[in-house]
């Protein structure tokens, strides 16, 4: 079936009433916007619904709108294995204390993607098994893809770490 945004929003709203799903426009994709609290339920619905079958995980990313709206937008991208179409699921979290539930138990690929969002934007994914920085190093201060992070900011040099005495990743 062809996925259109309005139709998709209606289905999601029916399946997960708390999501308050609304459609929005982006060229070429089905796209909905949902409440942050309903992310896990909506993603699970989209994945397991036999008509949609959005089983291919593509991406989790974020955009920082803290200057204009005080929010960070999270975008989940999935692809249908039935029609080959792509769906964008958008949600917003407060930029001051961004928290949202993880979907890494639904999609294994979200593990690293969420870590990257945490690394770059400081969004904390609750329930994530390994919420650490991924591309940057442990001692890095701040979250560079936030608009408030100055482009040319220099980070202090960190002392060399003895990998035997002080291993990283830390033992859990």
């Amino acid at each position: 079936m062809a996925i259109n945004s309005a139709d998709l929003a209606a289905r999601v709203a029916a399946a997960v009433p708390s999501s308050g799903a609304e459609c929005f426009v982006t060229p070429g994709d089905g796209a909905i916007e949902i409440a942050a609290a309903a992310v896990v339920d909506v993603v699970r619905f989209l994945r397991d619904d036999p008509d949609l079958a959005l089983r291919l995980f593509l991406d989790v990313t974020a955009v920082d709108y803290q200057d204009s709206r005080g929010q960070i937008e999270l975008i989940y991208v999935l692809r249908s294995m039935v029609s080959g179409e792509r769906v964008l699921v958008k949600t917003r979290v407060d930029a001051a204390a961004p928290r949202v539930a993880t979907i890494s138990h639904l999609f294994a690929g979200a593990n690293w993607a969420e870590r990257e969002v945490y690394d770059m934007f400081g969004v904390h994914f609750e329930g994530h098994p390994n919420m650490r920085r991924i591309l940057l190093y442990e001692e890095f201060q701040g979250h560079p893809l936030r608009k408030s992070y100055p482009y040319q900011k220099r980070q202090p040099l960190t002392p060399e770490r003895d990998p035997i005495a002080d291993p990283w990743p830390k033992k859990r």
Partner: peptide, 9 residues
């Protein structure tokens, strides 16, 4: 299943 879940393409 694993491949889809990991987002392999």
């Amino acid at each position: 299943e694993q491949a889809l879940s990991f987002g392999l393409t």
